[in-house]
Each structure stands twice: as C-alpha cells, then as structure tokens.
Design a protein around this nucleic acid. Structure first.
Lengths: 165, 165
DNA sequence: ATGATATAATATCACTTGATATTAAATCGC
DNA sequence: GCGATTTAATATCAAGTGATATTATATCAT
C-alpha cells in the first residue's frame, strides 16, 4: 500500500478518492460533485444558456441536460425560455439553491482540509499553481492539432467479440 | 476559459485530461491507462493472484477480471492455475509484454513532460510530494470510520422515476 | 474430521456515460 | 428574402462501470 507510482496513475487515483470523499460528505444534500460544480458556476453566470454553461464547466452538453433535468426536478435551478433565441433556455438558481451553495463551499473547504492535512501552506500554493499550469498545458494540447495522434478508436476493456474472419 | 476554480474541481479536470491525453498517445498500442497500470504493477509482482493485483492497483476485482480478459486475449498476460490454491490464478507477463512496457514508460514520460511543460523541477517535486501526501490522507480517511458519514445512497444524475406515492 | 465462515474468480444486472442522430430555430452567403 | 449551414437542446443507443450474487475452494473453530 502507498508505494510510489507513476505520477499520472497517482493523479487519477487521488482525483478518484477526492471525488468519492466529497460525494460521501455531500450525500446530506444529495448532490454529485458535477452537480455542485454546475451550481457553483451558474451562480456566477445566471441567465446563461445550457450550451454556455456546458462550455464553462467543461461538461458534455448531453450530460448537462441530465444534470439540469435532475436539479430542475429538485427545484434547485429553473429553465426559462430565452425571448431572444427560441432554441435556448436561460438558467437560473432558485431561492432553494442559495443555502445549498453555502453548504457546497463548506464541504469543499472541509474535504480540501482533509486532503491537505499536514501539508504546509506554501506547498499547497505551489501545488495549486502547478495544477493550474498543468490544466492550461493540457487544454492547449487538446486544441492544438500539433502533437500528431493517430485516428483510430479508443481501446476497449472488454474482450472484443472474436473476429470471425 | 482557464478561470481559477475550486481546487477539487480542478483536480478532477486535470486528471480527466491527463488520462485522455495518455490514452490518445497510447492508441498506438491499443491500451487504456488502467491496462497500462496493471501491466506496470504486474511486472513487479509476477505470479501474484488477481485479487492481490487488484489490491495493489486499487482496481475493483470485477474490473480486474475484465482487464485481464482483454489483455489475455491480446496475449500480453497469462493466467496459470495455482497448484497451492485451486481457486486462484497466478498472473504472468508474456514475452510480448516486455516491449509494450518500455513503450508505456516512454509514453508516461512523454505525457508527463507535456503536462509539466514550463514547470520548474523544484515545483514538480513539491507537486509530487503533495500528491503523495494527499493520497495517504485520503486513504486513511477511507479506512478510518472516524469522519461520520451518512448511510444513504449515492445520488443519481438522472431524474429519479416520479415516485407514485 | 466437519460444519461455518471467508475468499478467489466470475456472472449478472442496473446505472452511468459518451457518441451520434434528431429537431427546431438561428445565422450566413448571396 | 431564401436556401445552406450552424447551433441549442434533447433522444437514442452502445459501451463502461459498480454493486451484488454465485460458485468453487480454502480456512477456521470445535
């Protein structure tokens, strides 16, 4: 247990455990981390369309539809039709969402504290800066067609059907 | 784009993009990151059972079955029955796996370099240390029943079926 | 030794997630 | 203005993933 491993494997593992921990704590408000993320971003962009919010939160549009369906049912958000674009729906938080947002921030701080237990402040700051830089680097690679990558399909985990050829 | 956000949200996002980038590069060898992780760990524990390898790699046993089914079909690993325990199957790398492992390490280094582009070495080291500490902290929380967490189910993203009551 | 319990591997099923298709309405080129 | 293209939201379907059940075998307590 705890043996050092490739940084990439570790990064994925820490992320997975962080999400699990956050969601364990967030069960009291019955929200997933993604739902919380959407609420947090929506607070700063009320009136945005689903497409805009999907872009900001880096969530697939179809996933956004599902998250919003759920949260609309929970009366946390409202979809109002946009008079300027009859395709779009403008998004708003409900009054019920306000205290939920406070709780989200409380939980975020709580779990961050648990994760960084015994990590000095200066190290946390370096960590945050590196993480932000890594994010920018990876985003740039995604947009940039520079790094040549083959065009084949993503590999599967399950055994492929035995090729009958 | 790139606006600062909660560290937890960011962590998940960076992890997701790292995995996507790694797997884009790994398409040439038709392996997912999880498959690579299993191979890497298996190299150091040849002869281990599936349960043992699942434990080491922090992969669910059922997922391990599926990964191994796939990789056995690809002739990267072998399952041999254990004479000392007729339930278990001991795992071994095939000759075909050796060059694949070298390629995995090459890709891991490549993508790490891309991710940490323009990040000074000392910051990378701090980042790695903090990540390892965060991992240990989160692992401890999982085992430890200390932090009281409710017993309800994980919330769903999809709208729950309208309760007919 | 023998029944009770635990463990290894796997099957099954339900739920999640991602890719693609669909539909309606906007915008663009002319 | 009008057809071609793009975009917003959503539906549909296939594949991934996790929880639990299953089966065979091992271990433990007596």
């Amino acid at each position: 247990m705890h043996r050092p491993q490739s940084l990439g494997f570790l990064l994925k593992e820490v992320s997975r455990r962080y999400v699990a921990r956050f969601e364990a704590q967030a069960r009291a408000i019955s929200l997933t981390l993604m739902q919380c993320k959407v609420l947090v971003h929506l607070e700063r962009t009320e009136g945005a369309s689903q497409a805009r919010l999907a872009e900001i939160t880096e969530v697939e549009p179809m996933m956004m539809v599902r998250l919003l369906n759920r949260m609309e049912g929970d009366k946390l958000i409202e979809r109002r039709s946009d008079p300027a674009d009859r395709r779009a729906r403008k998004l708003y938080l409900t009054a019920k969402a306000k205290p939920v947002l406070e709780e989200i921030w409380r939980l975020a701080g709580l779990v961050r504290g648990e994760m960084f237990e015994a990590v000095p402040k200066s190290d946390r700051e370096v960590f945050a800066r590196v993480l932000e830089k890594a994010h920018r680097n990876l985003c740039a690679l995604e947009r940039d067609p520079a790094a040549k990558i083959g065009a084949s399909r993503k590999p599967r985990n399950r055994p492929q059907r035995a090729a009958l050829a």
